[in-house]
């Protein structure tokens, strides 16, 4: 059985310098500030006891007031999992650091989120639309999206 780590368990193992990046602890996830996302992710990946080497998936949710990004991590070595979340309140040009340099698996998923949710990933090697064509108006998965037709 994959052991799902609680937010507090993972937070307890974080370095002091990174602890400032924690925005909240939930029983099933760890909420971090978006500026710290990359550093915390890098730490979680490399810390021997945690070793989250496999990124299961990334997704984004539009809560109208803010976007929430959900990263689901698994360690194939220790067989435990962790969910980290981050938020972004800017609706006009939401920007989040990209994690492609840590997990290649994020590449297409971040492009998908950019296409459908309109969130920009800073540091992504090829940030462009993936499913819809260039010139498509809006980002369909946003709650305020309306189809032009």
């Amino acid at each position: 059985m994959t052991l799902a780590l609680a937010g507090s368990e993972a937070a307890a193992r974080l370095d002091k310098s990174l602890a400032a990046g924690i925005a909240g602890l939930n029983p099933d996830s760890l909420l971090v500030k978006s500026e710290f996302l990359f550093d915390i992710a890098a730490f979680l990946k490399d810390e021997p006891g945690l070793n989250f080497n496999y990124l299961v998936h990334i997704t984004a949710i539009d809560y109208c007031d803010y976007f929430e990004l959900v990263y689901h991590l698994v360690s194939l070595k220790h067989n435990h999992s962790l969910v980290i979340k981050t938020r972004c309140t800017d609706r006009k040009t939401p920007t989040i650091p990209s994690v492609v340099s840590l997990w290649r698996g994020a590449e297409l998923q971040e492009r998908e989120i950019f296409d459908l949710m309109g969130i920009n990933f800073e540091g992504h090697p090829n940030m462009k639309r993936i499913f819809l064509w260039e010139g498509f108006q809006g980002h369909p998965l946003r709650k305020d999206f309306t189809d032009g037709s």
Partner: peptide, 15 residues
């Protein structure tokens, strides 16, 4: 409210 699919094939195509 949100229906997200972790698509195995899309991610397999990353590499």
């Amino acid at each position: 409210y949100r229906f997200h699919v972790r698509s195995s094939i899309l991610i397999n195509l990353t590499a």
